[in-house]
Design a protein around this nucleic acid. Structure first.
Lengths: 215, 215
DNA sequence: CAAACATAGTTGTTTTATACAACTATATTG
DNA sequence: CAATATAGTTGTATAAAACAACTATGTTTG
C-alpha cells in the first residue's frame, strides 16, 4: 500500500471583538498560496506530535503564541482538490479566546462575515467553525470562553446575543442561568462604573456544560 | 517535508434491531489485528477516491454491499498509538440504515452496549458514534433513517424511545411531529394488523431536519 | 355476528417554562 | 441631592409540555 497524502492541521481561532465574531488569519510566506491570508496551521509532525489535538495546540502556540482555553475538533477536510500539491487532509480545529488575551502580534483579526478569499479551502473551514459556534452556543456554556475568566451577566447576555444574532430577555436569561447552575459568583468582586456595580461570575467547572436550548 | 502517516477511513454502521442499537463489524483477515472484529474501513485510495466521504461510501459498498441512506462524518482519530504500523489517521464516519435493508451477509451485528474488544481504537469510534446519535436524535429527524422509508408514528415514537432511552408521551409526541412538519402521510397506505390500521408516514424532504429539542 | 380486545389516534386539563412588562436597587455625576 | 444609568427582581400573561381520559377502527373469538 503506497499512499501519497499530505496530512495537516488547521485552527480557526475565533474571538468576539467590536461586537462581532472575528477570526485570526496570517499571511503565508511560502508556496503554495504565498502571500495570501490563511489560517494558522501546517503539517502534522509525526516525529513530534502525539496526536492531532496536540498538533493543533503546537500550531497555535508556535504561530500565534496563544494557549486557548477552548479547543475542539471541528471537521476534517480531505480531498484531492484542496491543495495544489495533491491529495491532502486537514484536520480542522476551532479555538475560542477572549479578545483581551490576544496580544496584537503576528496575527490579524478579521470579521467572519465578509471575509476575503483565503488560501486553500480555508473559507469553508471558517464557515464551518462559525456555524458550529452559533449552533452550539445555543445549548452550552460555549459563550463563556469568548469572555475573560470573570464577567458580568450583562456581558454574558450580550455575548450570547452577538453569537446567536437575537435579543434575549433579561429576566428570562437570568432565571435560566441560575437554574442551569454552571456559573458561580465571585464573592466581593464587582464591576465598578457610573452606575450600580455588577456582580462578577465565573464558570464553576473547567469543562463545557451542555444544556437544553437556552431561550 | 517528509511525512510517514497512514490515512484511513472507518465507518460505524448503526441500525436498530431487537429494540436496541447495533453496530456492524467484520472479522479482519490480515495483519494487524488479524482475526479480530473491526469496523468496515481501510486505506484512502488517493488515486481513486475524490474525497473522504466518497472513500467512506466506497468502503461501505465494497465491504458490506450497502448504500446507506444516511452518512455523516463523525470525528477524526489521529495519533501515533492507535495503529501498530505507526502514526495513523482515521477519518471516521457513521451511517444509519434500517435493519430490513441489511442482508445477512458478510457482516455481523452486535449490540453497542457490551461490545467485545475491537481492533485498533474502534471501540472508541463506536462510542463516539453512539453518543452522537443519542444526542442528535433528540433534536433532529435522524431517527427516521433507522426505519424503512414508510413507517407509522408509533414505530417512530418507539425508535426515538429506544435511542433516547426514555419514554415519550404519545399525544405530545404526535402534536410535536405535526407542528414540525417534516413528515407527510402516504395516502391510502396503512399498516394492517389485528387492530385499527395505522397511517404510514415518510420524510417530506430527503435531507435531515433540525429542530428544537423534541420533548 | 356481536362482544371483547388491541392498538390508533384525539381531546381536555394541569403544570411548567418562557415572554413580556413593570418594578426596585445602587452606584456615579452635575 | 436630584437626575441618570445600569443592575437586578418580581409579577403576570402566554405557550408548550406532561398527564389523563377519551373515541375510533380494525381483528379475534365465543
Amino acid at each position: 500500500m503506497e499512499q501519497n497524502i499530505i496530512v495537516t492541521v488547521d485552527v480557526v481561532l475565533l474571538t468576539l471583538r467590536d461586537d462581532r465574531l472575528q477570526v485570526a488569519v496570517q499571511r503565508r510566506d511560502k508556496e503554495p498560496y504565498n502571500g495570501q491570508l490563511a489560517l494558522p496551521g501546517g503539517y502534522i509532525h509525526d516525529d513530534e506530535d502525539f496526536d492531532a489535538e496536540g498538533s493543533a495546540r503546537r500550531m497555535l502556540k508556535d504561530k500565534t503564541g496563544i494557549e486557548a482555553p477552548y479547543l475542539e475538533q471541528l471537521e476534517t477536510f480531505a480531498n484531492s482538490a484542496r491543495d495544489p500539491r495533491g491529495w491532502s487532509v486537514s484536520v480542522a480545529y476551532y479555538a475560542l479566546v477572549a479578545p483581551e488575551s490576544l496580544a496584537a502580534g503576528q496575527l490579524d483579526l478579521l470579521p467572519v462575515d465578509g471575509l476575503p478569499v483565503l488560501a486553500f479551502d480555508h473559507n469553508k473551514l471558517v464557515a464551518a467553525a462559525v456555524k458550529r459556534v452559533r449552533n452550539k452556543a445555543a445549548y452550552s456554556s460555549l459563550a463563556c470562553y469568548l469572555l475573560p475568566e470573570r464577567f458580568t451577566l450583562t456581558e454574558l447576555q450580550h455575548t450570547y446575543e452577538k453569537i446567536l444574532g437575537s435579543r434575549l430577555d433579561k429576566s428570562s436569561f437570568r432565571r435560566k442561568i441560575a437554574s442551569l447552575d454552571f456559573l458561580e459568583t465571585i464573592k466581593d468582586e464587582v464591576q465598578a462604573g457610573r452606575q450600580r456595580p455588577a456582580q462578577f461570575w465565573k464558570l464553576k467547572q473547567g469543562r463545557l456544560t451542555i444544556f437544553d436550548k437556552l431561550l
